[in-house]
Amino acid sequence: MDDTSKRQLVIIGGAEDKEGDCLILRDFVRRSGGIKSKIVIMTAATELPRDVGENYIRVFEGLGAEEARIIDTETRDDASSSTALQAIAQATGIFFTGGDQSRITSIIKDTEIDTAIHKRFSEGVVVAGTSAGAAVMPDKMIVEGDSQTNARIEVVEMGPGLGFLPGVVIDQHFSQRGRIGRLMAALIQEPAVLGFGIDENTAMVVTDHQVEIIGEGSVTIVDESDSTHNNMDEILKDEPLAIFGAKLHILPHGYKFDLKTRQPILDQNPVANISQPLATSNS
């Protein structure tokens, strides 16, 4: 049986700092072993794998990583490369870049590399992803959708993710692109009770069942476990959704959240009074 206490995810909302203090990427390198870390950069999401990958090599090696290398999978055949599989077997940190999340799943999901990464994740290797690389972390992901709109079924398209953090929905570039409507639409469509909207240059670090927020923005958490009503079964796809009694938590740097109790944590104690009820209606 896997020891879930070993599992660590660094899920980044995109546009993380790569030139200044590099707080989030620095944290990823530290968790991956610091000056002994061996990091593989998964560039499946981007159409510019060499440029994007080499930029991350520069950052990770500048932060002291012992080694950083690119795994470029342009096709599913590349996802069974013995060289790539060997690099993953030796890695202490695995990083998915941004781009198009559907490229990641279409090329990598259910391949030898996918199996190898999940095995290493269960053994304690840190898995991180930014933007599109963050979107693929759940078992069901947001493939695409409209920003800055009210919640309607049609504003979001869902698809299979890589399943590192099942049972949740994740959205990125959250505040910057006004994505609360599409997160709500995704959450209501999927059998998940928690939705996470991650701002740019912000990350949620998941260790076992605890989430810690780092970075300059916030993570918006929508909990619909106690929701009393939604009208999804009564409307057409272009009509607005109604949700009653969902909870909203907004957590900045340093705050934590317990995935089991679904409660924010302050000073290691769950805090109920920093949550706010969220009900949307169409008046």
Rank of each mutant, 00 (worst) to 15 (best):
V127P: 11
G99D: 08
P138S: 13
V143R: 13
V136W: 00
T105L: 02
I142T: 13
D100F: 08
I153T: 14
Q86V: 01
I113D: 01
T105G: 03
Q90A: 02
K109M: 05
I108K: 06
S147E: 14
A89H: 05
E112G: 01
G93P: 04
F95V: 02
S122D: 14
G159A: 15
T111W: 10
G133V: 07
Q90P: 00
D146E: 15
Q148E: 13
A87G: 00
E112N: 09
G99W: 11
V127L: 10
T105S: 05
P166D: 14
G93C: 03
G167C: 11
R103A: 07
H118L: 08
A87V: 00
D110F: 03
A151I: 11
G124I: 09
E157L: 08
I142Q: 05
T97H: 10
A128T: 09
H118D: 05
Q86I: 03
D146I: 13
V136Q: 06
A87W: 06
A134D: 11
F121C: 05
D100V: 12
G145K: 10
M137V: 12
E112I: 02
G93K: 04
D146M: 14
S147I: 03
F164P: 00
K109S: 04
G163E: 10
D146R: 15
I107S: 01
V127T: 09
T92A: 00
V156A: 12
G159D: 14
L162D: 04
A87C: 00
V155E: 01
K119D: 08
F95K: 05
A87Y: 03
F164C: 08
F96Q: 04
Q101R: 09
R152M: 15
I94C: 02
M158D: 04
E154D: 15
G93N: 05
F95A: 00
P138T: 10
A87E: 04
V126N: 03
Q101H: 09
M158T: 12
G159V: 03
G124P: 07
R103F: 04
A134G: 11
T92V: 00
R152S: 13
T97R: 06
V125I: 07
M141F: 12
Q101D: 08
A91L: 02
N150P: 03
T97A: 04
D114L: 02
G167H: 13
I153Y: 02
H118R: 13
P138G: 11
I104H: 09
T149C: 10
F121Y: 15
D110M: 06
I108T: 01
D114N: 12
T97V: 15
A128L: 09
G93L: 05
K140R: 15
I153Q: 14
D100A: 10
P138K: 11
G163P: 11
G124S: 07
E123G: 04
V127Q: 10
I107V: 15
G167S: 13
Q101N: 14
F96D: 01
